[in-house]
Design a protein around this nucleic acid. Structure first.
Lengths: 240, 240
DNA sequence: CGATTATTTGATTTCGGTCAAAGTAAGTGG
DNA sequence: CCACTTACTTTGACCGAAATCAAATAATCG
């Protein structure tokens, strides 16, 4: 729990919230936070819960407070592609469109802080810094989407898996900064989700993970827990 | 050449510019346009010219006035993936980052209107509507990137080609709106570029185009010119 | 502990890639 | 205007990485 001078007059709800420090809410002063907090709801959703449905109307945006949210597109034949993953304290929502063009699901159990779409859009007008933060967030999402386009279009299955593990390590293990050689974390996605993210099948994902384990690049405990002793060795297999 | 009341006091350079109507410059009043126009340069680049290099410093942003710009990522072994295509009057540039994470090349001959990065970033602070337009543009790019992620990860070669032709038709042939059944246009990309965009090889692109021609879904003249008599028939093959 | 779901492993097939060659278009300079 | 070069595209034969089909094994949960 952080408690600094900026906490004065800040709604209880927001006082210890990461979104106020590193997320979009950081753009708001305590008065604006109070206004927004009146229509804000903090809630949990368990893994698998659909948060936004493709083609559905979006009345509320959210900040991800913990856990991982996956953004998916569905094609004919039930084929699915995950087109984005959101980690705390990411902003979840597509401003200026009432209808969603993709579906959002909780990949793990998640905590969200949601508020009415229109309240945020109104606040963006009177607080340019909020718009600025949102622009920064969306630019980051665009950078990430383009990195994955290159992976989806041109990397081999082995390279996709290596890139994926590195990306997760960087987002989940706080110790996986550039200065550290090792990382350990629980995968936030099932094999099926990883396959949908990388444009592969479950079987190929499994085989490639087994292969990396056989080559002592990673260790796997209980299917979900991954230990990487030498991040550079994994990075050498990412193909870029 | 448009000449309405809004043209009063507008720099000559901007008077007939589409970017002032549908692009980001539409957010600027004539005084701001005049300021920006002082450091603005209008120039042409021929097909193949590198406009921004990966890892290079970006000192200027641009509006695309005509032609098509491709945004590319390069992986090891010289593998390439096109991660975005920009048509007039799109904005070309990544605000708030001095170093580019991708390369931009003219896919066709292009006309650009460029201005210093810092001039635009400064203007964004004092003109929230400019930031708003930029946000809208980047949100559109993100939507498109995610559509292509689904195509790259989950569509077959045949579906990728069909989707690609539809996307180009919508962007280039003004008559290809939802109300029209037919479209005709010159492909702005070579077979090699199409392959790099769709994550395929030149040979596969060629074979799929030949197949669509054989099935009378498209006609091809002179390699580059495409005629689609029934857009719905092509859309039925796009896989979504 | 049994039932259900998730993951791994194995055998086989297939779509798209690779390699090779021929066909076409577009310049270029004599 | 035409031979000649050069680059682009198409077509064909073959190959291989990943998909599909099919069990077996491991984890999870009531």
């Amino acid at each position: 729990m952080r408690d600094d001078i900026h906490t004065k007059g800040v709604p209880v709800l927001c006082a210890s919230c990461e979104a106020r420090h590193r997320g979009v809410c950081g753009a708001l002063n305590s008065e604006q936070l109070a206004t927004l907090a009146r229509s804000t709801r903090r809630h949990k959703a368990e893994a698998g819960k659909e948060l936004v449905s493709d083609g559905g109307n979006v009345e509320r945006f959210s900040n991800v407070l913990s856990g991982v949210v996956k953004l998916t597109k569905t094609l004919s034949n039930g084929r699915q592609q995950i087109v984005g993953l959101q980690f705390a304290p990411d902003f979840l929502g597509r401003p200026f469109e009432a209808e969603s063009r993709l579906s959002a699901q909780a990949a793990t159990d998640v905590e969200l802080c949601s508020f009415p779409r229109q309240a945020l859009e109104r606040m963006m007008v009177e607080q340019p810094d909020l718009q600025h933060r949102l622009l920064e967030q969306k630019l980051r999402e665009l950078d990430q989407a383009r990195d994955w386009m290159a992976a989806l279009g041109r990397k081999t299955a082995a390279e996709k898996i290596a890139s994926f593990l590195l990306m997760i390590a960087r987002n989940i293990d706080p110790a996986a900064g550039p200065e550290h050689r090792a990382a350990a974390f629980d995968l936030p996605l099932s094999r099926a989700d990883i396959a949908d993210f990388l444009g592969l099948t479950i079987e190929t994902v499994s085989r490639q993970l087994t292969r990396l384990r056989g080559e002592n690049v990673i260790r796997i405990d209980n299917n979900r827990h991954i230990v990487i002793d030498d991040l550079a060795r994994l990075a050498a297999r990412a193909g870029d």
